[in-house]
Amino acid sequence: MQSHWGDTLQPALVQHIELTAIAVVLGFAIAFPLALLAHRYRKLEHPIGVFSALLYTIPSLALFQLLIPFTGLTWTTVEVALVAYTLVILFPNIVAGLHSAPDEVLEAARGMGLTRMQTLTQVELPLAIPAIVGGLRVAVVSTVAIATIAAFLLPDGLGYPIVLALKEPTPFKTEIYSAGALAISFALLCDLALVALRRALAPWAARGLA
């Protein structure tokens, strides 16, 4: 494994982190305003939710291929698909978080003279943090997993050493196990970091892991 670290595994890991980070950041940047809209105009929630659920059933390998005629064999193709999948996870979680403030709390806020905007920023958003971080955990971990499929199109990410190894007449076990272990460890590390983030931002939230 040591001999492959510099030329294969390390670049693959760095690419994998980039693929994941871009997808989650863009996905959050799109999902958050959409969720605020759906929170304000509740009629929007159901149609967006159904659309998301159907989008999520599209197999990643098929979605990547179907985007190629539009954006070619590029990172854009991969990112469009990954962002779509993160949106599907993040949007319902953020909306559920925003809806989670109990009615009594909202009435108390109104009674204290808070405007709608103040209620959102000072009451609803803080109460939504556990659900939002929960959504981020699922989004990050599944993006790390789906990003390995990008290797079917591009020679990038931790999936690529695995795809290459599988094409050999006798598959190279070292590549499969080391790249696989890196992908899984990276996903679990991100998950732990987000749990720590939630403890810091919302120390009142239940300690449950799921």
Partner: peptide, 8 residues
């Protein structure tokens, strides 16, 4: 289960 990439 979520962290295990299907390809791996």
């Amino acid at each position: 289960g979520r962290a295990l990439p299907s390809l791996v």
